[in-house]
Design a protein around this nucleic acid. Sequence first.
DNA 1: TACTTATGTTCGTTATAGAGAACGTTCGGT
DNA 2: ACCGAACGTTCTCTATAACGAACATAAGTA
Lengths: 206, 206
Amino acid sequence: MSTRRGRKTGESQQVDPTPALGKTIQRLRKAYNMSLGELSEQSGVAKSIISQIERNETNPTIGTVYRLSKALETTIDEVLRVDSGVNFIEYQTKSGIPILESQDGLCRLAIAGPLNLVESLQWYDFQAKPGGVLESDPHPPGTIEHLYLLKGELEVTAGEETRTLKAGEAIRFRGDRPHKLVNTGSVDAHATMVLVIRNFAGEERR
Amino acid sequence: MSTRRGRKTGESQQVDPTPALGKTIQRLRKAYNMSLGELSEQSGVAKSIISQIERNETNPTIGTVYRLSKALETTIDEVLRVDSGVNFIEYQTKSGIPILESQDGLCRLAIAGPLNLVESLQWYDFQAKPGGVLESDPHPPGTIEHLYLLKGELEVTAGEETRTLKAGEAIRFRGDRPHKLVNTGSVDAHATMVLVIRNFAGEERR
DNA sequence: TACTTATGTTCGTTATAGAGAACGTTCGGT
DNA sequence: ACCGAACGTTCTCTATAACGAACATAAGTA
């Protein structure tokens, strides 16, 4: 009875605390067009471990996750966030541009602008089929999101405000709160999104 | 040269990825008036480990941090957040009420209401010396914050709105975005704060 | 075809995170 | 004072996270 030593061994009732972690790491890695080896080199984490983490076969330490999130230019809590909202799976086109596609297949997000750089600008091509919804967690404080609707109809909700855009219209809203895009039209919607990220702290004035 | 095996051993140039983690855990534990033993029992994590984590003497796994954050009724990313803003240090009064005091000593926050329960209500006593600032990260979505100013003068900023309160006035604002309290007066400010946390999802209406 | 080069996985080993018990302190009570 | 009870720390030991290399699997080249 008291033989049980060490960890909670045996008792395999092991609920995975972060089933999203592996997928998230992999998604980010793919989005940056990195291989396991590259990420390993940049993060200092052995690629074997990264492989295991992505498949949720290990319970990484905070330190490891930290180094990975740094290499992926994000924060540790961003990478651990319980992925409420749309989950993207990614694949590569032959041209090398990574495409993120929502699980229901209704939304496509192509990373068009510089992401790798320590730039304060990110730039996406967004497409949504009728009924497609993109829910976005807040970006860093001070982030402004610009959206230019090329085609279709799009309902944009930022904070508690909601507006409906028609083709050709543009909108600017704060990206540092949860926001949502819904294709309320009957045809595919197509938009260009630009994120301007304020990356200096403080300076709340203005 | 190639003798180096295993971890990054030796190379003690070990930058602590999360210097805030230990303090955060301890702060929460104290805020709930828990001992190491109690938290150990509730979380399933050995109290020896909790002790080490609080003093940043170990590099916990995600699983461990997860179990702790659950026991502390918060999320794993909340507990890892890089504590931007005012840092509180805590101590116990003889009456057992935990007091959180900001590092500059200008603000005091006493947890007066039920915190231990799975209640959707938290209740604080807030005091600030002239110039004292309390910056608060967003609470869960749907949280409404009520503030009743007992004495002094207080500038309340929620989202992008700012209002100045005089003694006896009350204000209600959304707590699910960053908000800030500043004592702009020349005397100590004293207020009662009540957080009403909406703990059912959805229902964004009104 | 065979040869190279990159990918992700699996395989030993070692360092260490975690569990449980033992230890030293600081309390309140009789 | 002395004695438990509770607290946080330090101990020993085991399970395992992380490492680096070997391996496999694919994709491109001559």
